[in-house]
């Protein structure tokens, strides 16, 4: 009896079901008004260091709902205060790399304040302290190690002292000299040091690693690695380059968030999460990064 009832109602039931699968899931586009009312801001990008002159790029931001792209801002009023000394930057319309520049070189420990004004944009400011000299010492031990395949290989190491009493941030990269390309290129290296372990550090696209001094505060630190065997066997002179920099905390956070934004890739939203990444900025009233670095390049021959 029950089966007969089901059969009698089967056709109407299936019809309802099939129609319910097609009705109901609809699409449209929305324009979030509260987000389209956008104010363009100045974007400052630059890394100050103690070995090169000052160079900053200033562009503007655009609304994501407009078809315009960010543009260079060529007529801003850019001032840097090195401690209390005022330095005016001028716009260098270099074809390859238009920037705001000054011939001044900054010193370790300098307190730097940046101020940028422009009639069409809100004022932006930033402040940082130049890192102290790291004075790292590099060392190369030819065929001093054995890799996992049993081949003899070179051991590269760098030693530096962590500044006491503050949180410090670093960036390290190991490169080898390519005779083919005629320059140093990044090499694969074993980040076996606990400070460089993946849960304590952050790897960037250029193979450099950002890390903190959490595990060696105030102490002398040596990081060493084995170079892949045979990379520089036929190099008569240049062999390796160790880039080790002390970087500002803002620059550290900026690189981390920027890497996450790149990893996020295509933006999509699915059921509760999207790949939104808020890129860190220390530009008050604007966007971008004013970073500070103590760059050290140690050539090992």
């Amino acid at each position: 009896m029950a089966i007969k009832i089901v059969k009698q109602n089967k056709l109407s039931f299936v019809a309802i079901v099939v129609s319910s699968l097609f009705i109901g899931c609809l699409n449209d586009t929305v324009t979030p008004k509260e987000l389209t009312n956008y104010t363009s801001r100045l974007v400052v990008n630059g890394v100050l260091d103690t070995k090169n002159s000052i160079s900053l790029e200033i562009t503007d931001s655009k609304s994501s709902f407009s078809a315009d792209f960010p543009n260079l801002v060529k007529d801003a009023n850019v001032t840097i205060f090195q401690n209390q000394n005022e330095i005016k930057l001028i716009y260098d319309n270099d074809f390859d790399n238009p920037r705001y520049v000054s011939n001044n070189v900054l010193n370790p420990g300098d307190v730097i304040t940046l101020k940028v004004t422009h009639p069409r944009y809100p004022v932006v400011e930033s402040k940082l302290r130049m890192p102290e000299d790291l004075n790292p010492i590099g060392n190369l031990l030819i065929n001093g190690g054995t890799d996992s395949s049993g081949n003899q290989t070179d051991v590269l190491s760098v030693t530096f002292k962590d500044e006491e009493g503050r949180n410090n941030y670093y960036k390290i990269n190991f490169k080898y000299y390519s005779r083919t390309l005629g320059k140093y290129v990044p090499m694969t290296y074993d980040a076996g040091d606990p400070s460089l372990a993946s849960y304590n550090s952050y790897r960037l696209n250029d193979n450099s690693i950002l890390f903190t001094d959490d595990l060696f505060k105030g102490k002398s630190k040596t990081i060493s690695t084995l170079a892949p065997a045979g990379l520089v066997s036929f190099n008569p002179n240049e062999k390796y380059l160790i880039e080790i920099s002390s970087i500002s905390s803002d620059l550290f956070n900026y690189y981390k968030s920027l890497q996450r934004a790149r990893d996020a890739g295509e933006i999509t939203f699915e059921a509760g999460y999207n790949n939104a990444v808020v890129i860190h900025s220390n530009i008050s009233g604007g966007l971008g990064i004013l970073g500070a670095m103590d760059i050290n390049e140690i050539e090992l021959k």
Partner: peptide, 19 residues
Amino acid sequence: FSLPIGKFRDIDGNVQLQY
């Protein structure tokens, strides 16, 4: 939801989304 409100150049010259 998280929606980008703007776009800007990063330190490497690439365009990034502003949230």
